[in-house]
Simulated assay, not measured.
Amino acid sequence: MTALFWRICLLNGVIFTLGTLILAFSPATVSARLRLTEVPVLVIGLAVILTANAVALRTSLAPLDELVASMRRVDPPRRAVRLERGASGDFHQLIETFNAMLDRLEAERSVAGGTALAAQEGERRRIARELHDEIGQSLTVALLRLKRVVDRAPAELREEVEAAQETVRGCLDEVRGIASRLRPDVLEELGLHSAITALCHEFGRTAGISVRREVDPAISRLDPDIELVCYRIAQESLTNVLRHAGADEVTLLIAAREDTVILEVTDNGRGGAVEDGAGIRGMRERAMLIEATLTITSPTAGGTSVVLVVPVRVRDEVPA
């Protein structure tokens, strides 16, 4: 602001000095009683002063408009656009401080979000393990005992016992399905390709919605965090399709393009405005953890598209 102050003072000083020199050394004069022939000289001088000040202030204050617009665009789940440092003029230090503040806030948010999501994944694994090891085992034991009861039950009770047996078997399958969704062991053991294949198969079987899967076989094992984020975003996208889209077909694409991996989930259901609920906010937070870009479009013409663009970090293979 000091530089702007002195610039305006200098500009006005130069203009008044030039005006004084013109009046002193040119035929132009200003009498005690203003003459009509002297009006153009004063009007021109006033116009020059106003124009020069307007141009100087507009040029110098333009970065403030950019700063205000950038502040209005700041949204916690999204990465904010940084202002150009080279074109900051008198507000160079202010722009540098603002960009540094955004860097610091996003770094702190990323750490906090990573800690929260890591705790969430840990809790998912714990619940999945308890479902599988405790409830799953108990249901398995109950199923085996019902099988022995069926073999010994009299004819008039056998149908009811068999129905109870099928109910327990259905509960066991459901528990295993929940445990699998909470903790995708196939992701850790076989990688993203196999995990997405299993996810699409399970979704198509339970939801009755056709899933067209296109996974680039050339994609090798990625960083574990990237694989987990891609899997969770694909999982949440399919869940949203089932809950809100009213679609009967979904396309899931994973492809490598230059130095990025792209995950795209598209449906042919209802379009319209997308509300940032807990699921979408969670997807945005996960995307920020791996410095990825998440874009969700849902035109009123129909269909929703979720696109995740991830910078590639290849997973280091452990030698056997």
Rank of each mutant, 00 (worst) to 15 (best):
L139H: 08
I226Q: 09
R284G: 10
I22C: 15
R78F: 09
R148D: 14
R183I: 01
L67Q: 00
L105M: 13
S220F: 08
P184K: 10
C200M: 04
I127S: 08
S110L: 15
G277C: 06
V186L: 06
M101A: 14
D259G: 14
A153Q: 11
V141S: 14
A256P: 00
P299A: 06
H132W: 14
R315T: 01
L42E: 06
L144S: 12
V309E: 13
S220T: 11
C200L: 02
L146T: 09
V314S: 05
P319L: 07
A195R: 04
V309F: 05
A52C: 11
R286S: 12
R124D: 06
L308F: 04
E166Y: 06
H244F: 10
L157V: 13
R169Y: 11
Q235T: 02
T260E: 15
R79K: 13
L252V: 13
A301S: 14
D103C: 12
I196S: 01
L308D: 02
H132R: 15
L294H: 13
I95E: 01
A292N: 11
L253G: 03
L294W: 13
F98P: 02
A52T: 09
I178D: 02
E38W: 00
A256I: 08
R73H: 03
T37Y: 02
A320C: 13
I22Y: 08
A234Q: 05
